[in-house]
Amino acid sequence: MTSLMERISEEELNKASNILKVIAHPVRMCIVDLLRDNNRLSVVELQGLLNLEQPIASQHLTLMQDKGILRSERVGKNRFYSLAKTDLTRVVDCIEHCLGGSK
């Protein structure tokens, strides 16, 4: 049997750890989930869906974009976000499954 450290380089494990640290926040997990279901959403839409004030939403979105989890696109006066790493939705699915599923 081989260990994870034998199958994945230390550099890749560190990248994975850093990504998991970023999405290990309830709001950011919800952002990943919403973007899976909606493909792309504007800052205003995300604020409304998550009941967040604009500065808080922007902080979360900026962090996630800086870490390569999200990509953004400006269309007119609006900024739209989508998942750059769509496989992260599987992490959210796994967490939901491990906790017993939906309400």
Rank of each mutant, 00 (worst) to 15 (best):
E73D: 13
L13G: 05
I8R: 01
R74L: 00
L88S: 04
L70R: 07
S3G: 11
A24E: 11
I95D: 00
G68W: 10
R79C: 04
I95S: 03
I19G: 05
C98N: 14
D93E: 10
K15G: 05
T2S: 09
E10S: 11
N38H: 07
T62H: 02
S72M: 04
I31F: 01
A57G: 03
L20N: 10
C98M: 09
T86K: 14
L50E: 07
N38R: 15
T86I: 05
G101H: 06
I56N: 10
I69S: 01
E10N: 10
A57T: 01
L63Q: 15
E6I: 06
N38F: 15
S72V: 02
Q65V: 12
D37M: 09
G48M: 10
A84Q: 09
L4R: 05
N14I: 14
L4N: 01
I56H: 06
T89N: 13
V91S: 08
P55R: 00
V44D: 04
I31E: 01
V27I: 15
L46R: 01
L50I: 08
L52K: 10
V91C: 10
N51T: 12
V43E: 01
V22K: 07
C98P: 00
I23V: 09
G68K: 07
I95Y: 00
A84I: 05
L20Q: 03
A84G: 11
L20A: 15
R28K: 14
I19Q: 05
V43I: 02
V43M: 04
S9V: 07
L41G: 05
I19L: 07
E73H: 01
L34A: 04
A57F: 12
T62S: 12
I31G: 06
S3Q: 02
E10W: 12
V27G: 07
R28Q: 06
I31Q: 03
Y81P: 06
Q65R: 11
E96S: 12
M29K: 05
E96P: 04
